[in-house]
Design a protein around this nucleic acid. Structure first.
Lengths: 185, 185
DNA sequence: TAGCGTAGAGAACCGTGGTTCTCTCCGTCA
DNA sequence: TGACGGAGAGAACCACGGTTCTCTACGCTA
């Protein structure tokens, strides 16, 4: 079975993403990625110059997919206020997925943020995009910027807590708080 | 200079805590701990059976100190409502400390939570204690348990975000959200 | 003062993991 | 059909880090 470059890249990224997320970055060896993906070490190093580059590629693709899934869900909601709250409903769905282990960027930042500028930068970029998306939906619902920032903090707290406690409940608590914070007028 | 067992333990824990927090656990070698603490490798391994045990001891001592510092600050506040909000004022002070890099347990959990049951358990215990403390202060201010949980999520979100963005602002945003969430009647 | 035990410095040992290299196979093309 | 080139399997290489061991110095005690 001969894989095209794109097929090999996909398989490598799939395997690496699953392994890094489940075990943490440093706990996964390149040989683990090879074993799960079926892509030989030689080809892995042809696709990516090294483990660092693979980590970056994984985080980059995950960022796109994560935000696409979120926006696809929110776009199904009706009025602006419901769309803001839908963020937290989607968090509940995400937290309930088997193997959920918190936010991949928060985990990666805790592990490598201090030693890898690339990981730190990707984390900041991802979180900034998420915050900007919340701000956009929040503004559409007539909310001031301060509220958007508060909603973002609730979402972050829910992700972290759901990961540590391995439970969906924080999403519901955060949703209730969000509903209470939204200005009525 | 001959150090007593307790003196050597303190020096080892001080050095290990600073290094682990600043760089992450796996990025710090036992020889780094030896270099910073001045405690020889031989003695380090006499005090703690291995790196894992040292990590546990560091997190354990930090848990006690962290909660002591928080409660000491909150205890200076007056009425129950002010005491609840004082939690977020203290977070602002903490975030502003030089070298602040987020919550040590969240970072450790992201790095080793999946592979080290001890780290995972210590993280859960620490967060449970923090949540219980907030619940206690919150209840004293006449707030229902749901609000306490929401305040906890705000604090967690603020810690994570302050760590990633390297700014104090999340503490202020979380404080404003907390003030808005507290029931008035 | 001689011997003992402890402690430090630092080398040594050993497994792990990132990266590279070798060998072989197989499909392609002249 | 035979040479070539890319790809996989897996060994090899090499650095790093956790852990242990050796050697030496020094203080205490009989």
């Amino acid at each position: 079975m001969v894989l095209s470059v794109n097929e090999a890249r996909d398989k490598a990224l799939d395997a690496a993403e699953q392994l890094f997320y489940a075990r943490g970055i440093h706990a996964v060896g390149m040989d683990d990625v090879r074993a799960r993906s079926g892509v030989s070490l030689k080809r892995l190093y042809g696709l990516y110059p090294g483990k660092d580059a693979l980590v970056e590629a994984v985080l980059d693709r995950r960022d796109q997919r994560w935000r696409e899934r979120l926006t696809a869900y929110v776009d199904k909601a009706g009025d602006p206020r419901a769309r803001v709250l839908a963020v937290f409903d989607w968090l509940a769905l995400w937290f309930a997925e088997p193997g959920f282990r918190g936010c991949a960027w928060i985990n990666a930042f805790g592990e490598a943020g201090a030693t890898s500028p690339a990981v730190a930068a990707q984390t900041r970029l991802h979180k900034q995009r998420f915050a900007a998306q919340i701000a956009e939906w929040s503004a559409a619902a007539g909310q001031p910027a301060e509220v958007a920032e508060q909603l973002f903090l609730l979402a972050e707290g829910a992700m972290v807590t759901a990961g540590i406690r391995a439970t969906v409940a924080p999403a519901h608590a955060a949703r209730a708080a969000a509903a209470a914070l939204l200005r009525q007028d």
